[in-house]
Simulated assay, not measured.
Amino acid sequence: MSTIDLLVRKDQLSTTELRRSEDVALNTGEIRVRIDKFALTANNITYAAFGDAMHYWSFFPVSASDGAIFGRIPVWGFGTVLESQHPEVTVGEKLYGYYPMSSSVVLTPTRLSLSGFDDGAEHRAGLHSVYNRYLRCNSDPFYSSDTEETQALLRPLFVTSWLIDDFMEDNNYFGAKAEGGPPAVMLLSSASSKTAYGTAFQMAQREGIEVVGLTSEGNVAFCESLGCYHRVLTYEQLDQISADSPCVYVDFAGNAGLRLAIHTRFTQLKYSCAIGGTHVTQLGGGKDLPGPKATLFFAPAQIKKRSGEWGGEELGRRLVQAWRAFVAITANPEAPWMTVDYHQGSASVAAAYKQVLAGGNDPRLGYILSLN
């Protein structure tokens, strides 16, 4: 048997290479998982854009000979156990979790329970546990066999969205929301992206908040159709918001020019939250900006905080409840927020990756890929 990997050049994300390698025998305690399907979204492009700074390249390293040049982008999806040298994991088990853009992967299950296990591979020991956890679908409260594609595409993004909203509420919107004062303006860039509109969906349920989606002219109609933004503006229409509005910038685009424009215009900008980098060709640092420092949001830190305060079971209950409400809206057959676009096979997966990297694709499309 052999494994196919889609490798991406770390310093030139448009350069890819499909590589096939022969599978080696498993060691005791290891399992081999066939990666049945995975989602590809702007979030995965963010993983690549921040791969070094946030250690995303470290989860599925490439061989030492060219690992400094190429990497495997992590994705979320479903897999099936093909081989097992672990006594507590059986062949045929279906797993949800963090995978490389590959046809299969070898994992070393540790901390096993009825719900799942961690990958105990040595190179992942220092990486955040949220990404190392694999869930057994037969006991996962999120799982439903008829919505696997929706789960792969939206679940990890929605968890981040939920945590961003919770983080803002937890910090009282950093002073932008004052009792008796005007609504706090939440500026969300890349408003057509799935993580952004998931965040807007949550924030729109809060009182005293105006959620403003910022997007390109071509995506205005789509963003307005979702109904989760109070206003949708193009990036050129910042002047339609009062310069002294108390506001928070939630940056999914990573566009350096847009960030500077927002920091320069809004005199009551209370917080600048960096989430992603969907505008790959316009990324830039946040030094020497007027107003607050642009601060990177790290979802696992908020998970850790809330797990400590509420307990893991209560956190899970709240997430599942919010997830079900979100899916009921996004998967409504009469007006779906997303349609699935399937790509199978090496050439098709590589082409889909370049489409997502380039941006400008239909925001209603959700890419589900398989190298098998």
Rank of each mutant, 00 (worst) to 15 (best):
E224F: 11
T264E: 13
Y249P: 02
G277E: 01
A274P: 03
F252I: 14
H263T: 05
E236L: 04
D251Q: 04
S272E: 02
T278G: 13
Y229D: 05
A253F: 03
L260K: 15
F252C: 12
H279M: 12
Y229R: 10
L260E: 14
T264Y: 04
R265Y: 02
H279S: 15
D244T: 12
G276N: 08
E236T: 09
G277R: 04
T234V: 06
G257Q: 09
K270N: 07
K270R: 14
G277Y: 04
E236M: 02
R265G: 05
D251M: 02
R259D: 12
S272N: 06
T278D: 10
T278P: 09
G277I: 06
A243D: 12
L238G: 06
A261L: 07
I262S: 00
C247N: 11
P246G: 06
F252N: 09
Y235W: 10
R259H: 11
Y271H: 15
S225V: 09
S272Q: 06
A274T: 14
V248L: 10
E236K: 01
H263P: 02
T281A: 14
C273I: 07
V250G: 00
H279V: 08
V248R: 07
S245W: 12
R231S: 11
H263I: 03
T264C: 09
C273T: 00
L269M: 12
R259M: 15
D251R: 04
D244E: 13
I275H: 00
T267V: 15
V232E: 08
V248W: 02
A274K: 03
T278F: 10
H263C: 07
Y271G: 00
I262Y: 00
Q237H: 08
T264F: 07
S242C: 14
F252P: 07
C273Y: 06
T264W: 08
A274W: 03
H263Q: 07
G257R: 09
V232H: 05
C228Y: 11
P246K: 07
L269A: 09
D244M: 12
E236V: 04
C247K: 02
G254Y: 00
S242F: 14
T278Y: 11
T281L: 11
A261D: 15
F252Y: 15
S245P: 12
C247G: 03
D251I: 03
R259Q: 15
Y271A: 10
C228L: 00
T264V: 01
A253L: 07
P246N: 11
L238E: 00
F266R: 05
L269V: 06
A243K: 12
S242P: 13
L260I: 07
L233Q: 03
R231K: 14
H279I: 01
Q268M: 13
G277M: 02
D239P: 05
T281W: 09
K270D: 04
Q240D: 15
